[in-house]
Write a protein that binds this DNA or RNA. Structure first.
Length: 866
RNA sequence: GCCGAAGUGGCGGAAUCGGUAGACGCGCCGGAUUCAAAAUCCGGUUCUGGCAACAGAGUGAGAGUUCAAGUCUCUCCUUCGGCACCA
């Protein structure tokens, strides 16, 4: 072993060894427990960023650790290759999205391979290839057959200038299109949906069983599904039917407050609004105005709540009163019934709307414990309440009133008790080119026919000119024109493509059998479910919920046996860094730290920065997520060139626990590099025959015993940190402690060498999942001939952990007054007695009477006195 | 707006089940080595007072529970993630 550590040569050598042995290719093996570790696959943007590095290092640490534990480990990698960025790049660079995507994949694969992750590359695939997407087309036709996929109208963002549908991301905060700057309109078009709501109850119930998931994610999923129990019923119109509308149907979770309804609100697209708009200019203008907003929930909720009376009245079925009907911008036609009842006394949003428009507020629920004034704010409690001003329901509590009102509405207003979900069916149609074609053909009457299995895949033409924003297949006659399946009649292909969440909802299963001549084969049941899934928190709801849904669909089609796709989940935080900018004409220009000279104050904080090219100052901004737009990214490849992959991997794991954000610090990277160099040097300096000695545990001296204890404490700590806690940062810290102790150890003699050799041998194995290249070399340097990746994870010798004495803290009235060393076998009484004899304790007890003594064994003694 | 997190020294963070606040690393200060510097090594480093022993304060703000609170409860502030067509 050379004395100086050269990362570049070590890493390329070790990677060659792994590749020559296909070290990470796996097959099904019933004799060993399997472990499937998966990181969320990347969108092939063309360059690896630090978020990827962090994500994939976490997966690799867990995979390599499990391999050393004797598991048959699968860790695959592939490409989430359909999506909007390829279209944007196509417009910008005048390249076909396919070409751009495949080039990016090749570049990113190369970058990724330099990190030395233990992937089984033989399973790699890209979702934009027909070999992959044909199976989701096939699956979709099955779902159509089973009635789980259907068409209905849905709202999209329409750019009136570009004449195209925009993604929410392409609409700015003011509701303007990203390219045209025109005010975006809501438009309804017919789209395909998957009936995820049919699985809502199962998804919700099984959320409770996902014990390996973070509670925060489970809570978010639960809230997203948002199960509620309520009543759907009619408000009759006061002056008889209007057109074919004779009643306004609403859903409420508070039927106990119906008597308090003082007005109604309907969506701009509701038939009553349309009717009123025909004769009322104010309504007409308002309805038009309502369409000029984006479709995102956040945009809707932030809107100033506005409404206009329709001049129509409805009859409150409980109070019999006539109440006015408004058209309001916060009610959406596509959600629920497109109309809501309003109870300003007991709902805060209704309250604010009523105050603004001078509508009456009626209290129908009274608190039994506190005074309530519904003219001040809505009273929304449901416990310790009674109904008032509600006729026959007066005096009932929430539960009783809910039931009685529900029964009454069932009798008198077509009422129906109904379980409702906040979750809506999954709209899977996208009016975009770079996605999987939806395998549907329409006949001349517009009826949808699924493409038969024998005609699949419907291949997306890749050699297209993509210059504008419109999908080129939308007017490509070769693509569109076909025949209706089973006939000679001309037919027209669906030109919408699937939401890219479609691909990412089942890729984890395809890795089990990437070459199967069907969607999945029996190998899927060997590998699934994924034992450990790792990815960004930003996917906590949508991607993870869709994948869970898809898993159940695949189960119900008979493709797999399990109920849930991911047994354990780790959601990792972002990688963040300092930003620097100049704000000249309102639009800030961002600079990368590489372009700047940074100034520090005497405490090491950045106090200023100047641009290298002109020497003039730039503003130091806040610390934000690494992104192109903020120009604060750090290029992993540059870092690997400078320090080696092991250092970059180690730093990405060392500075904060994985679920928190990681701040990129050049100094921290250097610290990790320094650590690896020190370990390398110490290992290279060990005597050649250090591993030849042995020791008898009972014959070690105090220093040897202490180092051996530290070694085994560290095994226990690192194992727990990786396996149970996922706190890789503290695992690394404890390995550094072991190193500090082992390298400072200066005993000599056969047993001392043996203990020190054991410490380094353990350290190298514990470190190997984090920094697999350098440890591979050091393992050989320690005199071992085996390959480190085939070694077992070290085991704790419980005997080595035994301590003869313990340090205990002494407190008087909860304040620390000293510490003492006691025998490990000391009883509570012994500890109490010894504590009283401590000088500083005695001083602090002067003139006081001891009231109580609390002894926490092995920790502290607290004496309460006054 | 709704849902979910986070807030601790100069900085990133540690404190795992209510029991020593600040592990480990960075930075900074001092020293060794060097013609000098880089690199490396050794020591110190929450703040205030003190030569020290030690004392006081201290985990976003404010209350509360407890012998004991960074940790539990309530109220509030700030920042971040998601909100269904970014992935």
């Amino acid at each position: 072993m050379q004395e100086e550590y050269d990362a570049t040569s070590v890493e390329s050598h070790v990677q060659d060894v792994w590749n020559a042995n296909n070290a990470f290719q796996v097959t099904e093996d019933e004799s060993r427990p399997k472990y499937y570790c998966l990181c969320m696959f990347p969108y092939p943007s063309g360059s690896l960023h630090m978020g990827h590095v962090r994500n994939y290092t976490i997966g690799d640490v867990l995979s390599r650790y499990k391999r050393m534990q004797g598991f048959n480990v699968l860790q695959p990698m592939g490409w989430d290759a359909f999506g909007l960025p390829a279209e944007n790049a196509a417009i910008k660079n005048n390249t076909a999205p396919a070409k751009w995507t495949y080039q990016n994949i090749d570049e990113m694969r190369e970058q990724l391979q330099r990190m030395g992750i233990a992937y089984d590359w033989s399973r790699e695939f890209a979702t934009c290839t027909p070999e992959y997407y044909r199976w989701e087309q096939w699956f979709f036709t099955k779902l159509v057959e089973k009635g789980l996929a259907y068409k209905k109208m849905a709202t999209v963002n329409w750019d009136p200038v570009e004449q195209t549908v925009l993604a929410n991301e392409q609409v700015d905060a003011e509701g303007r299109g990203w390219r045209s700057g025109a005010l975006v309109e809501r438009r309804e078009i017919s789209q395909w949906f998957l009936k995820i709501t049919q699985y809502a109850d199962e998804l919700l119930a099984e959320t409770e069983k996902l014990e390996g998931w973070p509670d925060a994610v489970r809570t978010m999923q639960r809230n997203w599904i948002g199960r509620s129990e309520g009543v759907e019923f009619d408000f009759a119109l006061a002056n008889g039917p209007i057109g074919d509308v004779s009643a306004i149907r609403v859903y409420t979770t508070r039927p106990d407050t119906v008597a308090g309804v003082t007005y109604m609100a309907v969506a701009a697209e509701h038939p009553l609004a349309t009717f009123a708009a025909a004769s009322n200019a104010d309504v007409k203008a308002f309805v038009e105005d309502c369409k000029q907003t984006g479709t995102s929930e956040a945009a809707m909720e932030k809107l100033e709540k506005k409404g206009v009376p329709l001049g129509i009245e409805a009859i409150n079925p409980i109070s019999g009163e006539a109440v006015p009907v408004y058209v309001a911008n916060f009610v959406l036609m596509t959600y629920g019934t497109g109309a809501v009842m309003s109870v300003p006394g007991h709902d805060q949003r209704d309250f604010e709307f009523a105050k603004k428009f001078g509508l009456p507020i009626k209290q129908v629920v009274q608190s039994t414990v506190e005074p309530v004034d519904v003219t001040e704010q809505a009273f929304t409690e449901k416990t310790n309440t009674v109904a008032i001003n509600s006729g026959q329901f007066d005096g009932l509590d929430f539960e009783a009133c809910f039931q009685a009102a529900a029964d009454f509405l069932a009798e008198s207003a077509n009422g129906d008790k109904k379980v409702n979900y906040r979750l809506r069916d999954w709209g899977v149609s996208r009016q975009r080119y770079w996605g999987c074609p939806i395998p549907i053909i329409y006949d001349k009457d517009g009826n949808a026919h699924t493409v038969p299995e024998s005609d699949l895949p419907v291949v997306l033409p890749e050699d297209v000119a993509f210059s504008g924003v419109k999908s080129p297949i939308k007017d490509d006659p070769d693509f569109i024109n076909t025949t209706v399946p089973g006939t000679d009649e001309p037919g027209i292909r669906e030109t919408d493509t699937f939401d890219t969440f479609f691909e990412s909802s089942w890729y984890y299963a395809r890795y089990a059998c990437p070459d199967a001549d069907q969607m999945l084969d029996s190998r899927a049941n060997y590998w699934l479910p994924v034992d450990q899934y790792i990815g960004g928190v930003e996917h906590a709801v949508l991607h993870l919920l869709y994948a869970r849904f898809f898993h159940k669909l695949m189960r119900d089609v008979g493709l797999i046996d399990s109920d849930e796709p991911f047994t354990r989940l780790l959601t990792q935080g972002m990688v963040i860094a300092e930003t620097f900018y100049r704000d000249d004409e309102g639009k800030p220009e961002y600079f990368n730290a590489r372009e700047l000279n940074l100034e520090y104050d005497n405490k090491g904080r950045i106090s200023g920065a100047t641009l290298k090219t002109d020497g003039k100052p730039v503003t130091v901004g806040r610390i934000e997520k690494m992104s192109k737009s903020k120009n604060n990214g750090v290029d992993p490849l540059e870092m690997i060139d400078r320090y080696g992959a092991d250092t970059v991997r180690l730093f990405s794991m060392s500075d904060s626990p994985p679920h928190q954000s990681l701040e990129w610090k050049d100094g921290g990277v250097e610290g990790m590099n320094r650590f690896l160099r020190r370990v390398w040097r110490e290992v290279s300096r060990l005597p050649d025959d250090a591993g030849q000695h042995a020791y008898e545990p009972d014959e070690l001296n105090e220093a040897e015993r202490a180092l051996r204890r530290k070694t085994h404490e560290t095994i226990a700590k690192v194992t727990d940190d990786i396996e149970r806690r996922y706190t890789f940062n503290t695992a690394i810290a404890s390995m550094m402690e072991l190193f500090n102790e082992a390298s400072r150890f200066d005993e000599r003699g056969p047993s001392a060498f043996a203990v020190q050799h054991e410490a380094f041998s353990v350290l190298v194995r514990l470190l190997s999942p984090f920094t697999p290249h350098i440890t591979h070399q050091m393992w050989a340097g320690l005199g071992y001939e085996s390959a480190l990746i085939d070694e077992a994870w070290p085991e704790v010798d419980e005997e080595a952990l035994v301590k003869n004495s313990l340090t205990m803290v002494l407190q008087v009235n909860g304040k620390r007054r000293g510490e003492m060393i006691v025998a490990a076998t000391a009883s509570k009484e012994d500890c109490e007695k010894a504590a009283m004899e401590d000088d500083n304790v005695a001083k602090n007890l002067e003139g006081k009477t001891v009231r109580k003594v609390i002894v926490v064994p092995g920790k502290l003694v607290n004496i309460v006195a006054n």
